Simulated scan of single mutants.
Amino acid sequence: MFFPPSTSRRVLKHSRVISIEAYAREDNLWDIDARISDTKTNPTQLASGVRPAGEPIHDLGLRISINTDFDIVDAQAVSSRHPYPGYCNAITPDYTKLVGLNLLKQFRHEVQVRLGGNRGCTHITELVQILPTAALQAFAGDVLKINDVATGSKPDAAMQQQTKQPFQLDRCHALKLDGGAVATYYPRWYKPASAI
């Protein structure tokens, strides 16, 4: 996404980078690796000392292993850079509390119960919150079939037998059931506003 030019002169001071990568494993599980990094363009005085410009204040990660039903079967958190050595990183073993949760069933609520506030690391828990949509995107077209009988395409036998609404429909503004995208690309599932 490209933003329009700023109307004012700006100076970069802080950068937060979040990355998520999904890996299909040979044992039919998936690993979702999430990482968050914060850097500043100037030396920063922390309670634990000065952090040089460009050196991460935070460099944190979380790997969850999930099955194709979105159940978390393993979780590992890492904290390689943090402002309070010996304290920030002490919480990483607690992220095994994610094991047994399902990314699509009351997940965000359960995360807050288990790891919210001072029961976890604010930044790692932020990463946890975006895992459901990341996993859905990872599975789209591979584990989950995203196609329906779209206009102009010839349905295959599996599509003709499909009786379950595609997972992505009615989960965002663009794919609301009474919207133009559904009417165009998923006509079988289109419902006029008066029918909803």
Rank of each mutant, 00 (worst) to 15 (best):
F2T: 15
P5S: 11
T7F: 00
S8R: 13
R9M: 06
K13C: 06
K13R: 14
H14K: 10
S15H: 05
R16M: 11
V17Y: 01
S19N: 13
A22I: 00
A24H: 12
E26K: 10
E26W: 07
E26C: 05
N28Y: 09
N28W: 07
D31M: 07
I32F: 14
I32Q: 05
A34S: 15
R35M: 10
I36L: 08
K40A: 05
N42W: 03
N42G: 00
P43H: 05
S48L: 02
R51N: 09
G54L: 08
P56I: 04
I57T: 08
H58W: 03
D59G: 06
G61K: 11
G61S: 14
L62Y: 08
S65M: 02
I66W: 04
F70C: 07
D71H: 02
D71A: 13
Q76K: 07
S80R: 12
R81T: 04
P83I: 01
Y84T: 07
Y84P: 02
Y84E: 00
P85I: 06
C88A: 09
N89L: 03
N89P: 10
Y95G: 10
L98V: 09
L98G: 00
G100N: 04
K105W: 05
K105T: 11
K105S: 10
F107D: 06
E110T: 02
Q112E: 12
V113P: 01
R114D: 09
L115M: 06
G116Y: 03
G120F: 05
T125W: 06
L127N: 02
V128G: 08
Q129D: 00
Q129M: 15
I130D: 01
L131M: 11
L131N: 03
P132Y: 13
T133A: 12
T133Y: 11
T133P: 02
A134Q: 12
A135W: 01
Q137I: 07
K145T: 07
K145M: 10
D148K: 04
A150D: 11
A150P: 00
T151Q: 15
D156Q: 09
M159F: 06
Q168M: 13
L169P: 00
L169T: 07
D170Y: 13
C172M: 12
H173A: 14
A174E: 06
A174N: 07
K176I: 02
D178W: 13
Y185L: 12
Y185G: 09
P187H: 12
R188G: 15
A195W: 10
